[in-house]
């Protein structure tokens, strides 16, 4: 594996997202703001966790980053190249296509029912590298199967003949087939059993070390994010509301939403009652740019939150929060 050699030493970001917006028009003059002025970066070899509720826009954000969706405004810079101007339909021809890959949430839905595991794993090699003969492809598939711990005799099987954990391994093998620099993981373990989840998490940690990839790890399970990530981004209704080193955000959350999220994680240990977020989330359709997105559910909400949208402020070294009451 070539990428073993160029481990990160410089601090130039691998991925730089600035002021990214993605809106979906849903009628005359109204649009759904799925991703609203989001900026962050990922350094080479870094693992960044992205957490948030369903519907907060994290799926849209990663689909924009992996170039499955066009951007509305803002830029995505990957390895000195601006990708946000390349149209989605043109991107398969871009040399950066193999640099950003995605591991899907549902291992069943993301595998073609009529492709064997071998077909699925070799698909990116055939499409994006080309010029391989059958023996070379078989050798690559066997190597990848070993890497993800998939027994080679399963390569000839169709998805419905594989267990959930095995399908997850096939999905990971496909994503790492071309040594991507950035691997985006969309809740890769949420469809799996606890015992299998632990195996896959260890596999992902191991692969990251061996292949030197950067991870953008999307999950709603904070326990899982904490285990695998260096830094965490908390998203709420299209905005990043808190970001920082994972342990620091976990132990000293500065945003009321993060606090509620962390307090709601079920645990074996006795812990105080979860902080309730009452009411329903605000609508992401034409949101008022001056009202904090959490207003109405937030236990700290005041008049000020209705007048000025809080922006991200550095509350501690590398720890940012968007709340008027971050102390």
């Amino acid at each position: 594996m070539t990428s073993l050699t160029d481990l990160p030493s410089q601090t130039v970001p691998l991925l730089q997202v600035s002021d990214l917006c993605k809106t979906f028009p849903i009628g005359k003059g109204t649009s759904l703001h799925a991703v609203d002025h989001v900026s962050f970066d990922i350094r080479p070899g870094e693992s960044v966790g992205l957490v948030g509720e369903s519907g907060c826009g994290k799926s849209t954000l990663i689909r924009v980053i992996t170039r499955l969706l066009d951007v509305t405004s803002g830029t995505i810079q990957f390895d000195d190249t601006i990708l946000s101007t390349v149209a989605v339909r043109q991107f398969p021809k871009s040399p950066h296509r193999k640099g950003i890959q995605l591991v899907f949430q549902d291992p069943t839905d993301s595998l073609n029912p009529r492709f064997t595991a071998y077909d699925t794993i070799t698909e990116p090699i055939k499409r994006l590298e080309g010029g391989h003969n059958k023996a070379q492809l078989q050798a690559r598939a066997a190597e990848l199967a070993d890497l993800v711990g998939l027994p080679q005799e399963l390569l000839s099987r169709f998805p419905h003949q594989l267990s959930g954990g095995q399908k997850a391994r096939v999905g990971i093998a496909r994503a790492i087939a071309l040594n991507p620099k950035l691997l985006v993981l969309d809740e890769p373990t949420s469809a799996l059993d606890v015992s299998v989840q632990a195996v896959i998490l260890h596999l992902l940690a191991d692969l990251k070390e061996r292949l030197g990839m950067s991870y953008l790890f999307v999950s709603h399970d904070l326990n899982v994010v904490r285990l695998l990530c260096d830094r965490i981004l908390v998203m709420y209704l299209g905005k990043i509301i808190e970001s920082g080193p994972v342990e620091q955000v976990f132990n000293h959350p500065r945003h009321p939403y993060t606090e509620a999220l962390i307090s709601a994680i079920p645990s074996f240990e006795a812990k105080p009652h979860p902080i309730p977020l009452t009411g329903e989330p605000r609508s992401p359709i034409n949101p008022n740019p001056n009202v904090c997105r959490l207003y109405g559910r937030c236990p700290k909400g005041e008049d000020k939150c209705q007048q000025v949208m809080p922006t991200l402020k550095e509350v501690a070294p590398n720890h940012w929060a968007a709340c008027h009451f971050h102390n």
Partner: peptide, 14 residues
């Protein structure tokens, strides 16, 4: 479906 998005990611044309 996920496998269609996956196909797009692996460089397949429309």
């Amino acid at each position: 479906a996920g496998f269609v998005e996956a196909a797009r990611l692996t460089g397949n044309s429309e």
